[in-house]
């Protein structure tokens, strides 16, 4: 398995791809980092006057009515926390729904699996915005679900689903579910069913087999799926905006505000950098936790 890389030839072959990755990934990041230490320009953009004001404003605020008073900028922290919390919930929902789905696909006859996988990817054919508006059509007050329930007499008046956290969660779970199912399926596909049988042979109950045999074996799929769901979820912009009704901001909306009507690009850049730092830190911690041996974790 382990191969010693680094021969000149290998490097040459990978150089173009590496170059693109390094330039395309780090170039814009450096710009954002630099912007976060500049001053806001006239009507958007930046002025080339170094300043740490953006980073100060990110965490603290001067009282509008008394500039001497400096307090924590709770509003930013609240928005940050809401994004993290909604993304965690989305990840959990995707995991709970994705596991049985992936298991179902992985246990079909091999020639059938391709069809099921294909079905999972169908939503990707349609633009995200269109799908989000489709959900809106379903859950709004005069939408499909409410009209149906009203007509059936199940409810007396429409249930307010639009413009709630519930709507945002439904939308995000729907959008990101395939990103959880696919890696889970990949892990289950490789699962040796004889191990499951062995578990039963050793008098393991269904739950025990699930917990001690299947979960540990498909864990890499969970880890990959969680990362794929959590990271885009935390920066989600369209779904919260359309379904959440904009009563509360998510991080993506807060950052957009600074580049749009707030016209404070340095502050927006600092927010984007902080988001990046938080995501990378969370990722490192998560991977360390996920890769740790079970003994280490318990002890």
């Amino acid at each position: 398995m382990r191969r010693r890389g680094g021969t000149l030839w290998n490097w040459l072959l990978s150089a173009p791809a590496l170059l693109v990755l390094v330039l395309a990934a780090s170039g814009p990041l450096v710009i954002v980092l630099v912007y976060s230490f500049l001053s806001p320009g006239n009507m958007g953009g930046v002025a080339w006057e170094p300043s740490t004001d953006a980073w100060f404003r990110l965490f603290f605020k001067r009282d509008i009515f008394d500039p001497e008073v400096v307090t924590w900028n709770e509003a930013h922290l609240v928005v940050f926390w809401r994004s993290v919390s909604l993304s965690l919930q989305t990840t959990a929902i995707c995991a709970i729904l994705g596991f049985p789905t992936a298991w179902f696909i992985a246990t079909r006859a091999p020639h059938r699996r391709a069809l099921w996988l294909f079905l999972i990817t169908i939503p990707f054919w349609t633009n995200l915005l269109v799908r989000t508006f489709a959900i809106q059509e379903l859950i709004r007050n005069t939408g499909t679900i409410n009209s149906l329930l009203l007509r059936l007499g199940v409810i007396g008046e429409p249930i307010q689903m639009m413009y709630t956290d519930f709507a945002v969660l439904v939308g995000m779970a729907y959008v990101f579910l395939p990103l959880m199912v696919l890696p889970l399926y990949a892990a289950m596909d490789k699962l040796d069913m004889r191990l499951v049988e062995a578990g039963y042979d050793l008098y393991g109950g269904r739950l025990q087999v699930l917990r001690h045999v299947i979960f540990p074996l498909v864990k890499p799929g969970f880890v990959a799926g969680s990362i794929l769901v959590f990271i885009p979820a935390i920066g989600a912009y369209v779904t919260p905006r359309v379904l959440g009704g904009g009563r509360t901001m998510m991080l993506g909306n807060l950052i957009e505000l600074q580049f749009g009507q707030g016209r404070n690009w340095p502050l927006g850049s600092a927010m984007a950098m902080l988001l990046l730092i938080v995501v990378v830190a969370a990722l490192v911690l998560y991977l360390r936790w996920a890769n740790a041996e079970p003994e280490q974790r318990n002890g």
């Binding site: 009507m43 709770e74 509003a75 930013h76 928005v79 904009g246 909306n253 707030g262 016209r263 404070n264």
Partner: peptide, 20 residues
């Protein structure tokens, strides 16, 4: 007319508080 950056910053702060 457009407001100055200082006033826009105050508006943004109120707006952010409103939507937090």
């Amino acid at each position: 007319e457009p407001c100055s950056q200082d006033v826009t910053d105050i508006h943004t702060q109120i707006w952010t508080e409103l939507l937090q």
